[in-house]
Design a protein around this nucleic acid. Structure first.
Length: 270
DNA sequence: CTAAGGACCTGTCGGC
DNA sequence: TGCCGACAGGTCCTTA
């Protein structure tokens, strides 16, 4: 589920149910996620109020008086608000029971997600070397040009590197490169400045649009019925290998790049 | 330092 | 129907 738009959608969905609410109890059924859930987490947050729900990159940050709860959804994670006492399924690993009579439940079949803690006054290593937010003004043409200078790595790998810019996952990397007319395998250092500028624009447009559409998915997602998916979204290339390019009609090509499926149009992307 | 590959884990889907 | 391999929205860590 979680590319940045889904994480932001999740944030918006849970925030009204969680902010300014006290955590009365923590239930960890499966502590073995990407990293172990800290054993003392319950002591640190029980009885304390969530002050705010923020997002940095694909991390959700729940601010408490003494520190920050860091949540990551990995490849298959989701967060839902449910009535307290709802029976837990096989992959419902962690419950945050709220004073409101609801609970915030982390479900994650593949367990690539994470539940971590950052004490006030410290910076968690995972958050230490993140690049700018893609929708932030700090992510602009000049910045991306500087990142690309002298780099031989494929442009797609570069924009998926969180030290360069956060939140660009496989789907939207494919989509943004298509929009910008850039071949995903092109060496980052060998792309003209003007084309990198349009790539910056494409990334912003694609993500902003997806966040807007995520709003539609939101109710299902958080409400707990429907599977979150991209069925509502207009993806030009992702998942369309072999189908005609929407612009020129040429069948879209697929290659592996850094183990990730990469779909593009040989005609339109150079 | 950069770049590429493996690793983590489960579920699903297509082919035989 | 059953089994097996390939693949899936992420990203850290190791290796070259």
């Amino acid at each position: 589920m979680p590319e940045l738009p889904e994480v932001e959608t999740t944030r918006r969905g849970i925030a009204p149910h969680v902010e300014h609410k006290r955590i009365t109890e923590l239930q960890v059924r499966q502590p073995r996620l990407r990293w172990p859930v800290p054993e003392q987490l319950g002591q640190w947050i029980q009885g304390d109020q969530v002050q705010s729900v923020e997002r940095r990159a694909k991390y959700l940050l729940l601010r408490f008086a003494r520190g920050t709860l860091i949540l990551h959804l990995g490849m298959s994670g989701s967060l839902r608000i449910q009535p307290a006492g709802s029976p837990a399924g096989k992959h419902d690993h962690v419950d945050f029971i709220l004073e409101s009579g609801q609970l915030l439940r982390l479900t994650d079949p593949r367990r690539f997600g994470a539940v971590l803690w950052q004490e006030n006054g410290t910076l968690h290593p995972l958050l230490a070397s993140l690049g700018p937010e893609p929708l932030d003004n700090a992510f602009d043409a000049e910045y991306l040009q500087a990142c690309c200078k002298g780099r031989k790595t494929a442009i797609k790998s570069l924009i998926m590197n969180a030290e360069v810019v956060v939140g660009v996952g496989n789907i939207y990397a494919n989509e943004a490169l298509y929009r910008a007319g850039i071949n995903p395998r092109r060496a980052a250092g060998r792309i003209a400045a003007a084309r990198l500028a349009s790539l910056v624009d494409a990334i912003k447009v694609v993500l902003a649009q997806a966040i807007e559409q995520g709003g539609t998915t939101l109710k299902d997602f958080v409400g707990g019925d429907g599977k979150p998916g991209y069925f509502k979204q207009e993806l030009a290339v992702y998942g369309r290998a072999g189908e005609p390019c929407l612009s020129c009609g040429e069948p879209l090509s697929e290659v592996k790049l850094g183990q990730r499926s990469t779909v593009f149009c040989r005609q339109c992307q150079r």
